[in-house]
């Protein structure tokens, strides 16, 4: 394992809704208390690194009941998670490896399905891509973006500021018109 959430420095309050693992690649440890584990490998980016994260988790979970899904993209990962959770019982844990963008989207699906924060863990291999939700037209724009960058909205073309504010329900970053004050 390359590191855990607890090893990184305390975060500035500025990022209270932005998980640390969506700002820099981090791998959280498995929860040995879980009874059944869903491990989702989203191979939408660096396949080798993602595989290595999952291999580390599987080794740590040797002997436990594990459902391992390899998914090509976020929507396949969300579908795999939702499928597993239909019959899941309390005691279940979910681990997601892949890009931060995929992890945020799968976390949102987990939250909507009733999972608590202490039932989910993430292994992030890349934080380059972000999804931005336009507060003015509700369109989502996916692009290689850093926090505080500006991006043209794919829906209304307004220039959106990528605000360091992430919705737990959707996994998207808040975007609002950056040049609204220019007459």
């Amino acid at each position: 394992m390359t590191g855990t959430a607890t090893e990184s420095a305390p975060h500035p309050p500025h990022y209270t809704s932005v998980p640390d693992w969506s700002r820099e690649p981090l791998v959280q440890p498995v929860d040995p208390l879980g009874r059944v584990h869903t491990v989702i490998e989203v191979v939408d980016g660096d396949r080798v690194a993602t595989r290595a994260v999952v291999a580390g988790w599987l080794a740590a979970l040797a002997g436990a009941q594990v459902r391992h899904h390899t998914c090509e993209d976020t929507s396949a990962a969300v579908a795999a998670l939702e499928d597993d959770l239909v019959a899941a019982r309390v005691g279940h844990r979910v681990l997601v490896a892949g890009s931060a963008d995929a992890c945020l989207a799968v976390r949102a699906a987990g939250v909507r399905a009733g999972l608590a924060d202490d039932e989910m863990g993430f292994g992030v291999v890349s934080v380059a891509t972000r999804t931005v939700w336009c507060v003015h037209c509700s369109a989502a724009t996916v692009a290689e973006l850093a926090l505080d960058d500006v991006v043209a909205c794919s829906g209304c073309t307004r220039n959106l500021l990528v605000y360091p504010h992430v919705s737990r329900r959707t996994g998207q970053h808040l975007g609002f018109m950056v040049d609204a004050e220019e007459a």
């Binding site: 929860d31 059944v36 309390v90 005691g91 608590a116 202490d118 039932e119």
Partner: peptide
């Protein structure tokens, strides 16, 4: 805990 319940529940 033995049955895997997390503290939050």
């Amino acid at each position: 805990q033995e049955a895997g319940w997390p503290a939050s529940r």
